[in-house]
Amino acid sequence: MCRHRGTILPIFPSGRGVGKLKCLILNYLEMETNEMTPEQSLQVISDAIAKSRKDFERNAGTPMILWGAIVLVFSVVIWLLLRTTDNLLWNFLWFGIPLTGWPLSHIYLKDKEIKGARNFVNDTIGQIWIGYGIFALLTAGALSFIAAEYIGVITMTLLGYAAAMTGMVLKNRFITIGGFITGIGGVVALCMFRTCDVTLAFSVASVVSLILPGIMMNRNNR
């Protein structure tokens, strides 16, 4: 049976044969394939899901590498400045991470985003990192008036939490372990604050929880 939906509009000045042609076109377009075997149906389902996953996974590690590199550069620079000058005001440079990272990621990652589709896993991970950004900024903002030297430790612990959550959502053991190492490292650094160089620990954390997992993800998904 052919139903005329008005979606196809063949132009015939006489109007003759239009209905029949519509039927033929619609029948062709509908391309009923009821003779698919169950195996073929399963293949269609798994192919579609695999293709979509591959699209989303292709550059999934790139944001982690980008943000990890920014954190690494800032933490090393802050560590060097604190070490050479003993001036705690250099801790305010931590705010340079979001100020540099957001515009850079907006410019650099825009072309790498999947256009036209949203995936629940990617949305969740995005929200985890937005949450991290907000809490890290709030904590750093509050601490800068009370105890600026603790900014690194607290944001490192939060970084570990966000990375571990990302790993758990992605079911990626490497990212999860990296996140836990970072988070626990932050807590340990907080306890041993006088003897531990937290800023340098933060640069190690950026490598363990962001850069290495990002590189591994991109390599696995190539």
Binding site: Q40, I49, A117, R118, F120
Partner: peptide
């Protein structure tokens, strides 16, 4: 049980939305 409709539904099951 049609190839394209099944492919579309499989994609939409996986995705939150798609254009």
């Amino acid at each position: 049980h049609s190839e394209l409709r099944l492919a579309v539904m499989s994609l939409l099951v996986e995705l939150e939305e798609a254009d």
